[in-house]
Design a protein around this nucleic acid. Structure first.
Lengths: 208, 208
DNA sequence: TGTAACTAACTGACTGGTCAGTTATTAATA
DNA sequence: TATTAATAACTGACCAGTCAGTTAGTTACA
């Protein structure tokens, strides 16, 4: 279907989708605007009618993702926190594993991880828009759990590492460092094990 | 000091050190061979006397790191495994946190994470040379712990995610997504918390 | 209804700059 | 002097961004 026959008002989102795929595959530097255009079903020139530069495209991808992410940390979970922090953590982990297991949803986080290494601005943007949000949510859960006497008292930054870390690792092992010809760890099995470890601990008879 | 007055036999390592810094800072695609040469105190042409291409430089960086890494998973730890798997895990985590906290040592893992996204070969190399090694070591620890009745029975891939994940996250938060003007989480504090969580569990009165 | 005028959306050839890799030459040393 | 190490100037491919021109769709009017 030719470009002019599709709805022009959808063009920015179409272009961002295309750019996300291409950037994730080739990296920002390695991606060519011609490839983005091809993916979007447009000519390169047309891209510049909607975005002023390659960098602007990257910024827009991140901003769009950050906005969407905000909606993922649902209100529902925050409410559950006051009732049962442990249940809220279970919900959070289950949902996060679902997201981390999806190759499409993880495109942007993977892209960000790669680009943040060389671009302080992107790192700062992601830090503020996503990571701080996660730390904040976990901090509330933790505080409530400690108050109710059901959770161990640890520092929030440690908790972020202990919970978000396994998610990142799962994402990397599932979509980047793939063992080919071998089925990855299934989300439900991982969920079961991770809840055992994080909630109950690795040791069977804790002595600490 | 002029290039010709230094020892030529050290040149390959010097070049790899320089390339590691430049690649980690700019990314592989974004790095310029002129910058690598400048860092190494050489001209660009001289680089090509030691490495046949930019890609060869990257491969050599990874191979050298993989070789060094093998020595880090010390024999000592494997021996401790049979005596006390729990202690061995404590040692492993303490050492890994030390490594993950060091901005120089983490240069290569950070570089790899960025490049593996767009290069299947690099991903496969790192998977085989590093990640499988880690999984193997943890698997042995786990097996022994379960046999002795001190560790919970979980799948090895889940354990890799639960233990290596927080390390990666710590590395990312310490060296990539840095909150500026704010001191990061200290390694010793993180170690204390992570051992509490992983070994004893988040819940104070486990019901599972 | 048919057609002429208009315009938003798009195209693809082109340009200027960048950079991996090469080569002709020079310096150091045995 | 012969050999090894290194340089600096160069080449050619590549690509972000530009722009003159095209196309498809819309409005105005007889």
């Amino acid at each position: 279907m030719k470009a002019q026959q599709r709805k022009p008002e959808k063009r920015p989102d179409e272009i961002l989708d295309a750019a996300t795929r291409v950037f994730a595959r080739r990296g920002f530097e390695g991606a060519r605007m011609d490839d983005v255009a091809l993916q979007a079903g447009l000519s390169k020139g047309a891209l510049y009618l909607y975005f002023s530069s390659k960098q602007a495209l990257l910024d827009a991808i991140l901003t769009r993702f950050a906005d969407r992410f905000t909606n993922m940390l649902s209100q529902e979970m925050v409410e559950e926190a006051s009732r049962s922090p442990v249940n809220a953590i279970k919900m959070l982990i289950a949902r996060a594993i679902g997201l981390a297991s999806d190759p499409t949803i993880t495109l942007v986080p993977r892209l960000v991880m790669a680009e943040a290494m060389r671009d302080k601005d992107i790192a700062a943007l992601y830090r503020e828009k996503i990571l701080d949000q996660v730390e904040n949510a976990l901090s509330i859960l933790l505080q409530e759990g400690v108050r109710q006497g059901v959770l161990r008292q640890v520092r929030a930054p440690s908790l972020v590492r202990a919970i978000a870390g396994p998610m990142i690792m799962h994402m990397l092992l599932s979509h980047v460092f793939v063992k080919d010809g071998q089925a990855g760890l299934s989300p439900s099995v991982f969920e079961e094990d991770l809840l055992d470890i994080l909630l109950g601990g690795l040791m069977l008879e804790p002595t600490r």
